[in-house]
């Protein structure tokens, strides 16, 4: 099949849902377990990291698709000539927010990866210290604010992206179907961002306090 922008863009759309979107949901679920107890969260992390061939799964089901979706997405985002002042229609606003939240999410993911997964890979943190690590990061109010903004942005990007995915594959065709889809996905957005924020609050709680603070403070500057 000769490549052209049709296939590149379709791949971008597909990967955004499978597997990247699925990973986001899994990530949200795991983090939400922190609201139950540090043990329950840690148990889930242990299960995930204990999956067979976990590194391959990570590479092929998370990193590579995410990289493609992110890089191609940036290319698409910067090609638009945004015109919200002339056309302030709801969908045009959402079009712009989809691009803004995409860029925020992309930048955040790079930073978040460097702070967490990369530190595990470098041996600076053990897997069972991840909860404490996040607790430590969130103890900085600026980092906490960034995390809150980023999880809301990521949730929006996923939910509004799902709305667009259904249009782009011709599943929601008529205006009524698309309107109902808007309600459904905006509902999903509220639920998702609430769950993520609840997880952040849980991680900020004292029960996640660990003893890796000193190490990390020196590490993160």
């Amino acid at each position: 099949m000769t490549g052209n922008s049709y296939y590149y863009r379709k791949l971008h759309s597909l990967l955004g849902v499978i597997p990247v979107g699925m990973f986001l949901l899994e990530h949200m679920y795991t983090n939400f377990l922190a609201t139950i107890s540090p043990e329950r969260y840690q148990q889930q992390v242990a299960w995930l990291t204990g999956l067979p061939l976990v590194l391959l799964l990570e590479i092929f089901l998370i990193w590579l698709p995410l990289l493609y979706h992110g890089v191609y997405g940036l290319y698409v985002a910067f090609q638009a000539r945004n015109n919200p002042t002339s056309y302030s229609f709801f969908r045009n606003q959402m079009f712009i927010w989809q691009r803004i939240t995409g860029v925020i999410t992309f930048l955040f993911v790079v930073w978040h990866f460097a702070e967490t997964r990369l530190q595990v890979a470098l041996g600076n943190v053990e897997k069972d210290q991840l909860g404490a690590l996040i607790h430590d990061i969130l103890s900085n109010p600026i980092a906490l604010a960034v995390y809150v903004i980023a999880v809301i942005a990521a949730s929006f990007h996923f939910c509004n992206g799902m709305w667009a995915f259904l249009v782009s594959w011709g599943i929601t065709v008529g205006p009524k179907a698309q309107r109902i889809s808007t309600y459904v996905w905006m509902g999903a957005f509220v639920i998702m961002s609430s769950m993520f924020v609840a997880a952040l609050i849980a991680f900020s709680g004292d029960e996640f306090q660990g003893n890796i603070g000193l190490l990390l403070n020196s590490l993160l500057g």
């Binding site: 056309y87 229609f89 045009n92 079009f95 011709g170 065709v173 008529g174």
Partner: peptide
């Protein structure tokens, strides 16, 4: 198409452009 859906709002002939686009996506 990036689904901004401005087209369907501005078309003077009221053509259901976004419906056409979604149908052609399929």
């Amino acid at each position: 198409c990036g689904n901004s859906q401005n087209c369907v709002k501005v078309c003077p002939k009221g053509i259901p452009l976004t419906t056409s686009i979604a149908a052609m996506n399929m």
